[in-house]
Write a protein that binds this DNA or RNA. Structure first.
Lengths: 199, 199
DNA sequence: TCCCTACTGGGTCAACCGTCCAAGACGGTT
DNA sequence: AACCGTCTTGGACGGTTGACCCAGTAGGGA
């Protein structure tokens, strides 16, 4: 094993854990599996982390932070609202296809957080982050296209997440990319109908 | 313990397993937890089932069968397409609020099936069933309202499931019923825009 | 040369899991 | 009353697997 700082090793292990969870689920994310994935000896785990919980905490924190960052700079303004939504959803979709494991982890995290009392609040934070970034995206689009939304933006944000979540979930199951893109495009056109002229 | 037939006890245990999975997730659905939930002694488990797998198989089979039945007779025809969609989604929503555990189990089942090779194909079957019943619902509505869909009905069926799945998932996390109903209503209106006059 | 930091092979120990057995209790039939 | 098929159940067994730790080793800057 290369000689690297403990901090770097931590990052490697967190990344490995992320991959394991995405591929095999939370239950199989054991210290052994994580170390094998990272190509590190088992003992290095407890050299870098006091406990497995410490790694899990760091992983969820990083994931939640990354959420805000990732979906935030995914907004793309085009002349029309419909086009803006279509392109924004398209870029989101690209990130999903590029790294399906990411979405698998997010789904697994939600699921896990919902029934593990130890992770109480994590799922709520996660969805609050989703809704917040969706809201910001919608506001930027409205601003950039010179329109206003005819429905409360909170409601539209929820609908936006319903679309991304729903399409992603179905795709994770059947991997029908054409159908996923078609659905996203159709929804983009529909959501654009909630844009009205600026007062 | 009351003296009942082995078959009745099987049903009790399957029902208990269903509740445990909905509440605590798949990983915690141990034979012990299931028996405690059913109020039955541990030994009764292997009196009724040859193995845990046998119970799990019966549970997934029952669940998939119930899917087709449940969402199938949930179609409600009204004079307009928008109204039909709204009422149909409304009735679906009623079933979710009445028994949130049901949807929890379905989500957990999908998640579990996606990374457990032993349940390979289950998630695909599940979503195929979703899409099939959604398609039938949409065809019945088109027929009942005397319209045709301007998009392939398969695509609309997928979008329909995206909406129900997405709204349900968000609600399972934050339990905001008002927001969920508002989103469903808005989507109903939007999907109705894909109805055109019969040729 | 020294010493601090990072590395790691090989445990330990306990929890918990699915499964099973052998003995008891019930109730309908003879 | 005796019988017997069916159900019930306390308690245990063997085995896997988990998180965690220790004591010794090696690399590299001062």
């Amino acid at each position: 094993m290369a000689r690297v700082s403990a901090e770097d090793r931590r990052r490697q292990l967190v990344a490995a854990a992320f991959r394991v969870i995405g591929r095999d689920g939370f239950a199989r994310a054991t210290t052994r599996a994580i170390c094998i994935e990272a190509g590190a000896p088992l003992a290095s785990f407890h050299y870098c982390f006091a406990s497995k919980q410490e790694l899990l905490d760091e992983l969820t924190t990083q994931t939640l932070d990354a959420l805000t960052a990732a979906r935030a700079d995914g907004t793309h303004i085009r002349p029309t609202v419909a086009e803006s939504l279509r392109v924004t959803l398209g870029f989101y979709w690209q990130t999903v296809e590029d790294d399906p494991g990411r979405e698998s982890v997010l789904m697994a995290l939600t699921q896990h957080a919902l029934n593990d009392p130890g992770l109480s609040g994590v799922a709520e934070q996660q969805y609050a982050a989703y809704h917040r970034t969706a809201r910001e995206t919608l506001e930027e689009i409205a601003e950039g296209c010179g329109v206003t939304w005819t429905l409360p933006v909170e409601q539209l944000a929820r609908m936006f997440i319903v679309v991304t979540d729903g399409v992603t979930l179905a795709w994770l199951v059947d991997r029908d990319s054409d159908a996923a893109v078609a659905a996203l495009d159709a929804f983009a056109g529909q959501l654009a109908a909630f844009a009205g002229p600026r007062p």
